[in-house]
């Protein structure tokens, strides 16, 4: 077990530092906006001005996790599907408009995927292992698998996080590259993880990434069988799929609350975590099904239940 000692999410829901993120959920609408904390509490004003939304929210969420555990993290593992899109687009505009002149490097510097984890290491003054995974909608799973490895290798506390940001341009990619009816949003979720038991005693039990899933229900069965758990032991499934063949009352569609970004399954984990505490239930499964038939499965367990 890899216990969750803190979760911090900034999303289009009122999710940051809530006791139970399920309490204030509203279904996502086209006009929903990112609900940001007061970033001045986390980032110096001089830096804040330069930072895009993805960097601001990731740093704030990471700092909340650091504050919760007080001792330094021994590894930082970040997942992002599309990276720092605001600065990427900004620099694309710069190179196409200011030919020949001196270019400002800020957007370029902040356009690389590892700007997120790099900036966190800078802000936390953390010299430890620092990794950035980007595997489309399986980016959380990849960063999580790495975090679990870090714990197994003896690292005490690991900072695991994901972040993705929406830019208007993404809406142009509907319906060709992105689903037609999707509401494209931004979000971040960071976790303080350790093999040491947390107060809640809830943690990640297992994670599986499948590049080409044949049949979701069959893959779920196989995953659970390896863990010697029956499907009827699962108390709830959090998924972005509408067509799963399980009783309706046990399935929650997290994307209805998060909107679409490719690491939103981390928000599903957050919903599941808080629900397991409140209902004193044992197992929640996060089923993340993406384009190209990829599939991510994450099992959360509550030791107290």
């Amino acid at each position: 077990m890899y216990y969750i000692h803190k979760i911090a999410s900034i999303t289009h829901q009122d999710s940051f530092n809530q006791t139970d993120v399920n309490d204030s959920l509203v279904e996502i609408t086209e006009d929903a906006v990112l609900i940001s904390p007061d970033y001045k509490k986390y980032i110096l004003p001089a830096s804040l001005r330069r930072l895009s939304p993805i960097l601001r929210m990731a740093v704030a969420a990471a700092k909340e996790c650091q504050e919760a555990i007080t001792i330094p993290f021994e590894a930082i593992s970040v997942g992002t599907a599309l990276g720092c899109l605001t600065d990427t687009e900004k620099f694309l505009n710069v190179i196409n408009t200011v030919e020949g002149e001196i270019l400002s490097p800020t957007a370029f510097i902040q356009s690389t995927h590892n700007t997120i984890s790099g900036l966190i290491s800078l802000e936390l003054k953390n010299h430890s292992y620092n990794m950035t995974h980007t595997q489309n909608n399986l980016s959380l799973e990849m960063a999580l698998i790495d975090s679990m490895l870090c714990c197994d290798e003896g690292k005490d506390f690991v900072l695991l996080g994901v972040a993705d940001e929406a830019i208007d341009f993404l809406n142009k990619l509907k319906p060709i590259v992105l689903p037609e009816n999707s509401i494209v949003t931004s979000g971040t979720t960071f976790f303080a993880l350790s093999k040491k038991k947390s107060k809640s005693e809830i943690g990640f039990k297992a994670c599986r990434s499948i590049i080409k899933a044949k049949d979701i229900e069959v893959d779920i069965d196989l995953f659970l069988r390896e863990l010697k758990i029956e499907i009827n032991e699962i108390d709830r499934i959090y998924t972005n799929q509408n067509s799963l063949d399980y009783p309706k009352e046990m399935v929650v569609n997290y994307e209805a609350y998060s909107g679409l970004y490719f690491t939103a399954n981390a928000f599903g984990v957050h919903l599941a975590h808080d629900w397991l505490i409140k209902e004193a239930k044992k197992y929640a499964l996060i089923v993340n099904s993406g384009c190209n038939n990829s599939l991510g499965l994450i099992l959360l367990k509550n030791d107290k239940a």
């Binding site: 980007t134 990849m142 990434s209 590049i211």
Partner: peptide, 10 residues
């Protein structure tokens, strides 16, 4: 077709 991952650390 098994495990596929991408690292992006510049």
């Amino acid at each position: 077709t098994g495990f596929v991952n991408t690292i992006s650390t510049a």
